[in-house]
Design a protein around this nucleic acid. Structure first.
Lengths: 361, 361
DNA sequence: CAACCCTTTTGGATCGATCCAAATCACGGA
DNA sequence: TCCGTGATTTGGATCGATCCAAAAGGGTTG
């Protein structure tokens, strides 16, 4: 598709608006060819002769032409546009994911519409409607909690590819899906903690009811069972902010049967937990191990450095965008479920066997 | 503008595509009115009779109509679309700002295109070209470093409103601008630090050459002069990540004339500085004061809590979006420069007079 | 009953590109 | 010279909405 010129019309550069807008017709007149030929040039069609192509390009440049993608869309039904709905762009996981999406799309000449649902199905429904009106070529959706299954199902009916990202509605993804293999990461974390001597390994989960949440809980349950720790299973549900992580950990660690290791729903919660331990005078990694999920930049820099299950949001964003583009090219190909590995990054907060005294620094 | 129906066509909900797409024409036939009338209903025009309006709405709903904004755009030259270009969406300041933008736009039925320039003027130029092709109604731009002045100037020529956010090219904003009053915040910080007994107050600035950077440096210089500390002025330039903040502080504090207080370009750098102090066995707020800029969520939760100049990204995003929408409605109104206050949030990292011993906890 | 006004509705032209079938061109071979 | 063939180019219809000037309906009034 055309990558139009970047400078203004070279005639009256100041003041009044040139009342004639530049369209294919003007270029055609200027280059003495037909509108159709100009259109072919704009589409980089191999049909036009090299010489003609150059002449047309020069005319377009000279007149300060800007391709009108909207008009093209009307006829060709392609917008080079893609919708992205997440619940919260301020969450570092999603902003990194969006960065990955943007990177892939820019390379392919697509532009993303970004919108945030705030985890509200109503707002999400409004956004979907709006993106349909804009005729996006596909949608990347991290579905809000409580999204009814019919929402995802309807996309097929109205011929709009939809890739679910990170979460999916229903037990198993209904169509295309991209996510991270968090259960394996949790299994690795539990095994690692077990090897370090931990038995009372608790999970700080979310209070929500979506697949990303359930996945963590069942992953944790199964891993604990495999380690023979079914009696030690403790799932604590609650909010997921940094502040909530702090408060929840404060409460938890002061209870009679405090755990010796925490696996947290995400790094924000885990970083909050680190703060709580610090306030309690406990040393993370010695008195209590902590594992986060996502491995955001901050994890490696925290003090002590946070062990985390790396969900690699940027890669997920890229994979999701690529899948969406592939689906646009081949709408009736087989649906795909891409699950990227989520390796455990072991750092100071789980580096020492339980009970190891901390050395003075 | 229309907020179309949310459910699928009620006839053949499964399998094959209904080969006739639903347009105004189909609705017109179904409701026995003309295309024009249906169009007026979709535009919520007060001209149509209430009864007719209802009948048309019912038909649209029944047929599963989806408004085609692209087609409307072609005639009316409004897209209900707006471009947003920032350098890095993964930066918490910008992701919060984008959240504010999105919030305001959603209320007004607009959808934002989001793109990231990575601070590269070439990439930025490509993105601007692409957004022009999409005919966005306006652009919110945080200009990349080294953006040539002519880029901003050309927007007026091609009739696309552009609001510069946080940074502006040239000495003073060329057109509409929304930013934060960082110089006043820095002045308050210097005065506060001075009152606490600090004299060697250093600035950890960026290495860049854009207004947001210069603004901090001159704000700092002038504040130091006003405090009679012109001989203590130390501007250190370098990278701006959390990691860079850590490394730069490590180097700085081990130099012979280490400062007693640091003002950092942003909170990420300041949080890096806190980590550095910790590693050096120094107590932030006692051995060395630290001030950040932005007041991201994390600042209040850091240990010790970080004093920060609150640039309030969400408010800035909202203000910028509102200004852009106002400019769309009134393209030739007076240009506006909105500078939001950036109050100093005093917390533990500057809470104690210089030399106060730390109490044991 | 005609003239007039106000509210509603309407047909046809239009926005700027793409699609497609048909026309044109260039050139070598019969 | 005429024809076939492949490479280019072209006119006109089309996508789905909006705009506008004009028409139709429905009272009221003189």
């Amino acid at each position: 598709m055309p990558d139009s010129s970047e400078d203004q019309p070279s005639d009256v550069s100041e003041a009044a608006s040139p009342p004639t807008r530049v369209t294919l017709k003007e270029i055609a007149a200027h280059a003495s060819v037909s509108r159709s030929t100009v259109s072919l040039v704009m589409q980089e069609s191999p049909l036009v002769a090299a010489q003609t192509r150059e002449r047309v390009r020069a005319s377009a440049q000279a007149l300060g032409y800007v391709y009108n993608r909207g008009a093209a869309t009307l006829r060709s039904a392609r917008t080079s546009t893609l919708g992205v709905i997440v619940h919260d762009i301020a969450n570092p996981f999603f902003s990194a994911m969006v960065a990955g999406i943007d990177e892939t799309l820019q390379r392919r000449g697509y532009v993303p519409f970004l919108a945030t649902s705030g985890d509200s199905p109503e707002r999400q429904a409004r956004l979907i409607a709006r993106l349909r009106e804009q005729r996006v070529d596909a949608l990347l959706l991290c579905p809000a909690e409580q999204t009814p299954a019919c929402v995802i199902a309807s996309f097929a009916g109205w011929h709009m590819p939809c890739v679910e990202v990170m979460r999916h509605v229903g037990e198993t993804p209904h169509g295309d899906f991209v996510g991270a293999d968090i259960p394996s990461g949790i299994a690795a974390a539990v095994a690692h903690l077990f090897a370090q001597g931990h038995r009372r390994v608790a999970l700080l989960a979310g209070a929500g009811d979506h697949s990303a949440d359930r996945q963590r809980v069942t992953g944790y349950r199964e891993a604990m069972q495999r380690a023979g720790l079914e009696t030690e299973i403790r799932v604590h549900r609650g909010e997921l902010s940094r502040r909530a992580g702090l408060e929840r950990t404060l409460a938890l660690m002061q209870s009679p049967s405090a755990p010796t290791a925490l696996i947290c729903h995400n790094d924000l919660v885990a970083l909050g937990a680190l703060l709580a331990l610090q306030r309690l005078g406990l040393e993370a990694g010695h008195d209590c191990a902590v594992v986060g999920i996502d491995d955001i930049d901050e994890a490696a820099l925290a003090e002590p450095a946070l062990t985390s299950i790396a969900t690699q949001p940027r890669d997920i964003g890229q994979a999701a965008a690529e899948l969406a583009l592939a689906r646009i090219d081949d709408p009736r190909g087989d649906r795909r479920r891409i699950v990227l590995p989520a390796p455990l990054e072991i750092r100071a907060t789980t580096a020492f066997p339980l009970g190891t005294p901390q050395e003075s620094s």
